[in-house]
Computed example of a mutant assay.
Amino acid sequence: MEKLPKVAFPFIIVAVILIIVLSKSAVTINSGEAGVLFKTFGEGVVIDEPALGEGFHIVAPWNKVFVYEVRQQEITEKMNVLSSNGLDIKLEASVWFQPDFKNIGKLHQEKSEMYKERVLLPAIRSAARSVVGRYTPEQLYSSKRDAIQQEIFEETKKIVEDQYIQLNEVLVRDVTLPATIKDAIERKLKQEQESLEYEFRLITADKEAQKQIIEAQGKADANRILSASLNNMILQDKGIEATIKLAESPNSKVIVIGSGDSGMPIILGNQ
């Protein structure tokens, strides 16, 4: 086997060094990520320049790049909080958030990659305890869920808005009350519902009775007016008209004998 000439060894060493340097210098930022540059022999964390965006970058091999996910993320927290009357409530909430891209260098410098544990989670716990403490278990269980969710979001946002974190949404996923309290609330709600249904039936029945009274009164008034407008001459005239119509009918056979007390013909039979 032929040996390599001695002059080739320096080139090989240089090539190896270049490969090592390039491997240390090449940084790829993936989709949805950003890089924070740390200059070892400079000012440290670079905060006065934009973060490294997606793609391939070359940095000095003695510097470091800390990669952050800048897409919207979700973190779920389960916690115990107290209601306004001191009852222990279990609350589960999800937080939608992302780092502030423009200030990601400051976020790294002041909070580090542990910003979720050091800032976001304590903020959501504090806000949840503050908000839930204003409400009774009945309100937490039924009508105030949306209001509580919005208030927790607003209180958490106040805490993190100057911490280089963009808060997008807070979702209250579950509120768990003590079993005895939950059963008592459900019984109370059921009784209230039954009471409302009973009141509705009473109101409906009362309206129906009033309607019948009005209809009966209307019929009575109509009959009284009709009776007052009738006299013997009108009745006799109506009788004559009816008799003529019967006599003119081709399907009738009418026999009239004498007359009645009123002077009207008496109809004995027809076919």
Rank of each mutant, 00 (worst) to 15 (best):
K116V: 10
E154M: 08
G263W: 05
F66R: 00
D206W: 02
V175Y: 02
I240C: 05
A34I: 07
Q217L: 05
E117D: 09
G53N: 05
I234P: 09
S130N: 15
V7M: 13
Y141N: 15
N85R: 03
V14Y: 06
G218T: 03
G269A: 09
I244E: 02
I75G: 01
L18D: 03
S249Y: 07
K245E: 07
A60Y: 14
A184E: 15
V14L: 15
L91F: 02
V131C: 14
I89W: 05
F9G: 03
T176Y: 03
R118L: 13
E192D: 04
S227W: 09
I213N: 07
G42E: 08
A209Y: 14
P137Y: 00
E154K: 01
K219R: 08
R118H: 09
I12R: 03
V70A: 06
M79D: 04
L177S: 14
A228W: 12
Q236M: 08
S143D: 14
M233C: 03
L177E: 13
W96H: 10
V45N: 08
I267A: 02
L235E: 01
K253N: 09
T176V: 12
Y141E: 15
L230W: 12
S195E: 11
D100F: 01
K39I: 04
R187A: 13
F56W: 11
V95A: 12
Q73L: 07
F66C: 00
I165D: 03
M79R: 01
N223T: 10
I75D: 09
N85W: 02
A60V: 12
A220G: 06
I213W: 01
V81P: 10
V132M: 05
L91K: 00
Q98Y: 02
K116Y: 04
L177F: 04
F101A: 06
L167I: 01
I257M: 10
Q166A: 12
Q212L: 03
K64Q: 14
P178G: 15
S23M: 11
V81E: 09
E54L: 03
V21W: 12
A128I: 05
L18Q: 06
S83G: 15
E186M: 13
L121H: 12
A242R: 06
K158Y: 08
S262F: 11
K6H: 10
S195C: 02
R118G: 10
K111C: 09
A242H: 14
I266L: 02
V172H: 00
S126K: 06
Q73P: 11
I58T: 04
N30S: 04
K182W: 08
I148P: 11
N63C: 12
S259A: 11
E194Q: 12
V7A: 15
N231F: 06
S229A: 11
L202C: 04
G239I: 06
D261H: 02
D88T: 15
D162V: 03
V27N: 14
G86S: 10
R187N: 08
R201K: 08
A34C: 09
A184S: 15
L202E: 06
T136K: 00
R145H: 13
Q212F: 00
E117W: 07
M79K: 01
E194G: 04
E197V: 14
A8W: 14
K90E: 07
G42V: 07
L140D: 12
W62T: 14
S142Q: 07
R71A: 10
E69Q: 11
K116F: 06
D48T: 11
L189W: 08
Q163E: 15
K78S: 15
P265T: 02
L37T: 07
K24Y: 09
L107V: 00
G53C: 02
